[in-house]
Nucleic acid binder design. Sequence first.
DNA 1: GAACCTCGTCGAAGCGTTTCGACGAAGCGA
DNA 2: TCGCTTCGTCGAAACGCTTCGACGAGGTTC
Lengths: 352, 352
Amino acid sequence: MATMQDVARLAQVSVSTVSYVLTGTRPISQATRNKVLAAMAELDYQPNAMARGLASRRSRILGLLMPMDERGLGATETAFVTGAAAAASVAGYHLVLSPVGGGNLDDLRRLASQRMLDGVVLMEVQLADERVTVLQEAGVPLVLIGRTGDTSTLSYVDIDFDQTVREAVAHLVGLGHRQIVYVNHSAATLASGYGPALRTRDAFTAAMTGHGLDPVMIAAEDSAAGGRAALAAAFAQAPELTAVLAMNETAIFGILGELAGRGLSVPHDVSVVSMVTSPQVAELATPALTAMTSPGSALGRIAIEALTRHLDGPTDLLHQQLLPCALEIRGSTAAPRRPALVTSGPSSSDGG
Amino acid sequence: MATMQDVARLAQVSVSTVSYVLTGTRPISQATRNKVLAAMAELDYQPNAMARGLASRRSRILGLLMPMDERGLGATETAFVTGAAAAASVAGYHLVLSPVGGGNLDDLRRLASQRMLDGVVLMEVQLADERVTVLQEAGVPLVLIGRTGDTSTLSYVDIDFDQTVREAVAHLVGLGHRQIVYVNHSAATLASGYGPALRTRDAFTAAMTGHGLDPVMIAAEDSAAGGRAALAAAFAQAPELTAVLAMNETAIFGILGELAGRGLSVPHDVSVVSMVTSPQVAELATPALTAMTSPGSALGRIAIEALTRHLDGPTDLLHQQLLPCALEIRGSTAAPRRPALVTSGPSSSDGG
DNA sequence: GAACCTCGTCGAAGCGTTTCGACGAAGCGA
DNA sequence: TCGCTTCGTCGAAACGCTTCGACGAGGTTC
């Protein structure tokens, strides 16, 4: 383990000169720089992260705080992580993933106060999220993936749920569907103030109303059984339904199973669109699901970029950005077999 | 940000005394300890992780190195992570997840040499894994989840593939199945020396042979399409097959789709067992899959415990442990409708 | 009662960086 | 030529902690 001292001695310069070569905080002549670089190479020198952190009061570590609950990361969340890690690496930071759930707020407070994290990206943000308060009190720079209710003082990147839902509905309506049911997360999740669930609910209502259609939403537990139950409820509320739009990635497999069980084929009897879904998951189903693909890795990347920009050049600007999901048409949507009576709008009347 | 100085001053003791209270490295009288503790509480003191790391030459950070590839973490890998994170927290360490894939060996070398990681847990180990060499050269304590080919000098925790496969086969044979096909990972994965694929292949051969049965293995691409192709190949090689055992969690959805497409019902025409699978994924299918549930979080926990034990008390003992997956019977296995002719062994002849 | 421990505490020397003030050596305008 | 910057470098003081040697005070042991 060579230290800066060793490098300085070998290069016959002072320690500070070596430091300046490394950090570029002061100009160094080309000749000296070369001597130092050569010495570093010869000694296989690596700066000690702890010493650097202590002296500079910046750890060059970023935290990605993700509540890792029982059911694990979907491919969407994984994409956040990989995107974020790659961006952090580019910016010269390390990324610490920390599974700080709702419960251990003290853990979080400790983590934040230990000066080990230069900044933090928060995932799975609730509309009212105590973690935000804790981190702000600890003075840790913060970027959210997702949004709290009051976004006026925070930087965030989030999915543009409004546009995503609008596009999904437009796709179905364009195919001729009139009775579309939206399967959301559970009632409990809605009640807990989970942003995506609430925002998509509102967006769905708006989009359907805009088409002159009746918005029917079902809250489903996050399980295959929940999906099955949701489909039963959907048929009860909307017997003529020809399409299902589902936010609940887990429930959707139950929905598909239940449709098969009722002898209904996808997409001919019922079309299915999965929202905020990764291609990997969409391909698991048979037929592969038409889905709104989440911009997962882009979200992670942008969040980290916003954070590092804030850390490296202390701009006080907030970064607030929404990214829509992209419609990827696969095998689970088609024109309805018996298109509902056209009650308004110029929807096509093909299909049979 | 109160420092140790502040605490010492307020408690009217020396800085070193405060340190001893914190670390317990020297005895401190109860009276003094109380004074110090009170001062800490009053100042809301949090030790500075960087300073501590520099002085003690231990960062109290552990790395979990996981190759995060395109298709993301399954619930199984996620369980590793949560188990490891929880155990690390208990042992007073932080966990850094680092997406160090195969390519960036230099990144890894840098990470290891910066003295930022006290120790490392390596996931998704190949039989010949360069990362192991790099870390050993850098002198970083190491525990594997998985195994390299030569395990003589390394600590590891891994799934007991041999027993897992044996149990799965025994379950199917016990139900009366004789023609069982094993769907493994892809040929490319096998060729790359991926331990689980190779070990399960051998274990399957051994288990089937032990029952006097013919082992048929199919290598399937990690996709739904790969699963469909695999099933076709399986029927080509073993037309009488009544059961499928699948290691390939992704392919299994294709297999199920293809079975449905052929009008074969699960489990009555064909039984399906999924290996090394999380309950969450098993429940996604309809019917829910009988599966060998991987001891995911236990693996992560045990790996971290072995690592911290090694770090805190420098035992030179290696920790080498295998954990079997647990058979969880759900809806995808049953006695075959027409059990194959009993050719040997005392299998029951019920079912019809 | 001398010699020797052990216990609890202190002061000071690091740990390996960054960063600040200083200072010759040039370079430049007047 | 004189004062003035600017450039490149140096030495030393942090940064906030751990850890080592030392040292009184109080017990034991013979």
